[in-house]
């Protein structure tokens, strides 16, 4: 016994046919954006953790120039000796003045201006331990030196990012649950319109599988169409955000890349919507038929 096709029994003439894909599109749109958002936050946290944590700074207070040079040399020598420190870079007076120029104007170049010396250390290993060691070694010759390992600052930022990431995942779960419920509900509502047709086919001698087959294919098509629409809208939205924000955020945020795993997951969203619609339609129709003798 063959199953009915779209040509035998077109179902697209009813209003629910337009309604269902639109609602599914909206759900998939939200799910896709939440998914991308969660991934963006995860990548950001990861990069901050691995990138910035390899650096710390030492600040030597302002002093007369000739003394400063000697002290800087002492500090560099001491710091380079610490195991785990791979490089020490000095931000000298000219560079510091150049950085301050926008705020102080030509006054920044005044040699009388007391400017601190900044040392940037590139380190490998337990950054907190290395910072403690640096403080111990500098305390005797240079008691005024300040060692900053950024850990407090990065830790706060990381916590924030991780919190946002967890929130995005939570939102994604909520949206997914809402999407499933919506697809189920809308598919069932759509089928209610077709109940007379289901009954009629049954009375004409259609087998249950034949009737279910026609309606489940119809629902799957609508789920797929809706899913693709939603995905396209999400892609357009992402493209727009990327285009408008890219020039301003590039310095603040690490570049975000949609990896192959995320891409696959996103591409699967419409298929998932289609499958949910198909299963819902099948179960609903078979249940409806089971009430008929």
């Amino acid at each position: 016994m063959r199953s009915l096709t779209r040509r035998d029994l077109p179902l697209s003439g009813d209003p629910s046919a337009r309604f269902l894909p639109l609602l599914i599109a909206f759900m998939i749109f939200l799910a896709a954006l939440a998914l991308v958002g969660a991934e963006a936050l995860r990548q950001t946290a990861e990069r901050w953790e691995s990138g910035l944590s390899g650096q710390m700074t030492v600040q030597l207070p302002a002093d007369a120039e000739e003394e400063a040079e000697a002290r800087t040399a002492t500090a560099v020598a001491l710091l380079q000796d610490i195991p785990g420190v791979t490089a020490v870079e000095v931000l000298d007076r000219q560079e510091a003045a150049a950085l301050l120029e926008p705020w102080l104007g030509s006054a920044a170049e005044d040699p009388q201006l007391p400017l601190p010396v900044l040392l940037t250390l590139t380190v490998e290993g337990q950054i907190a331990e290395i910072a403690a060691e640096a403080r111990a070694r500098l305390s005797d010759p240079l008691p005024a030196a300040q060692v900053d390992d950024h850990q407090e600052w990065i830790g706060g930022l990381l916590n924030l990012t991780r919190g946002l990431g967890a929130l995005a995942i939570f939102l994604l779960l909520l949206v997914s649950a809402a999407a499933v419920v919506t697809v189920v509900f809308v598919t069932r509502t759509g089928l209610a319109v077709h109940r007379p047709v289901i009954e009629l086919l049954h009375l004409m001698g259609a087998r249950d599988a034949q009737v279910a087959g026609r309606f489940q294919l119809h629902a799957m098509r609508q789920g797929l169409i809706g899913g693709l629409l939603g995905l396209a809208a999400a892609a357009a939205c992402y493209g727009l955000l990327d285009w408008t924000l890219a020039p301003t955020t590039i310095a603040l945020l690490p570049p975000f890349r949609i990896g192959p795993r995320l891409l696959l997951l996103l591409a699967l969203l419409p298929a998932i919507a289609g499958m949910i619609a198909l299963l819902t339609a099948r179960i609903t129709v078979l249940r409806t038929l089971a009430r008929m003798p």
Binding site: L9, P10, P196, L200, L203, M204, G205, A206
Partner: peptide
């Protein structure tokens, strides 16, 4: 059921199908 033809009191035609497709339905099944 496929050996029984029924003329329902309220006809039960499928609205968005043409006369042709309505009549063809039992044969397609």
């Amino acid at each position: 059921r496929r050996r029984i033809g029924v003329v329902f009191q309220d006809f039960r035609l499928i609205e968005h199908l043409s006369v042709y497709d309505n009549v063809a339905l039992p044969l397609r099944l």
